[in-house]
Design a protein around this nucleic acid. Structure first.
Length: 277
DNA sequence: CGGGACGCCTGTGAGC
DNA sequence: TGCTCACAGGCGTCCC
């Protein structure tokens, strides 16, 4: 489920509550994608000192009693969501698989498919967090990511632009929904080879990615099924999607039927008239 | 190394 | 109603 806008919305709705909270108890449910990597009891008495995001990962920085820091790297996978409960958390459901109890309230991860993860790491730039983040491209709103560098990155890949965006190698954050939507906004056929995209079209695509992701963050993300912000609110961007999930429906610009093709085992939606190779 | 397929899991909706 | 199948917001791993 969660792409960058959903993860960022989660982060924003959580950070005000959890900063400064002191860990009481940690509870683990069924196994997630990877083991926590530390005894849960080891985390007790740590203080939450930051909640940052890198790509679709969240980094919950913890301060130890001796002043040193470590933290938890969290990922929501396809179906995960994080919820914050003050002091009135409802009983656990069957899909709740991680809880961080604090003196301010409870952080709970709900994830039916369990593709998500919570992994302890000594630091963001130390294993295992560093290994998981090592292949990520730049953040979409990073000022170092320019039209020029973006075009240069595209030129080094022969795969389709849609698959490349999903890989996160040239820019993190766009998953299946936002990759489709940004390619529509830029007028680029998702099957187009990345290294065949001209400089001006690359510039348009970068702009479209930033606008699409930015508007999705403003809308609180996309809620198709599972996704909720930490305060329980749903996203609204699903109402703004112009091609995603609209197979055979008329393009909102030219009325041509929206097509669905499969690329790398993922559905791609596009308008064959508005989007060109 | 780049690129593509696979697998991890559970739930849901369509079709029969 | 109940079964089977396709599909679902991600991504690390494996194999060419």
């Amino acid at each position: 489920m969660p792409e960058l806008p959903e993860v960022e919305t989660t982060r924003r709705s959580l950070v005000e509550h959890i900063l400064g909270a002191k860990v009481g108890q940690v509870w683990l449910g069924k196994p997630l994608r990877w083991p926590l990597g530390v005894e849960p009891s080891c985390l007790v008495a740590r203080t939450v000192v930051a909640l940052d995001r890198r790509g679709k990962y969240l980094w919950l920085a913890l301060q130890r009693g001796d002043g040193r820091r470590d933290g938890l790297l969290m990922h929501l996978g396809m179906s995960g969501s994080l919820a914050w409960w003050g002091h009135d958390a409802p009983a656990r459901g069957v899909h709740d698989h991680f809880e961080l109890g604090t003196d301010r309230g409870l952080l709970r991860l709900t994830d039916p498919r369990r593709f998500g993860a919570v992994v302890w790491s000594a630091a963001l730039d130390a294993p295992p967090a560093a290994d998981l983040l090592s292949r990520l491209g730049p953040e979409p709103f990073d000022a170092h990511l320019t039209h020029q560098s973006f075009h240069a990155s595209l030129a080094t890949h022969r795969t389709s632009i849609k698959a490349l965006l999903l890989s996160g190698r040239v820019m993190v954050g766009a998953g299946n929904i936002y990759a489709c939507e940004a390619l529509f906004a830029a007028g680029i056929d998702p099957r187009c080879r990345a290294d065949r995209i001209s400089r001006p079209r690359a510039a348009r695509l970068l702009l479209a990615l930033r606008e699409t992701l930015g508007r999705a963050i403003d809308a609180g993300g996309t809620t198709l099924r599972d996704y909720r912000a930490a305060d329980g609110s749903q996203g609204a961007f699903q109402h703004e999607a112009r091609v995603y999930g609209r197979e055979a429906q008329p393009c909102l610009v030219c009325s041509t039927a929206v097509r669905r093709v499969v690329q790398g085992q993922r559905s791609t939606f596009f308008c064959p008239r508005c989007q060109r190779r």
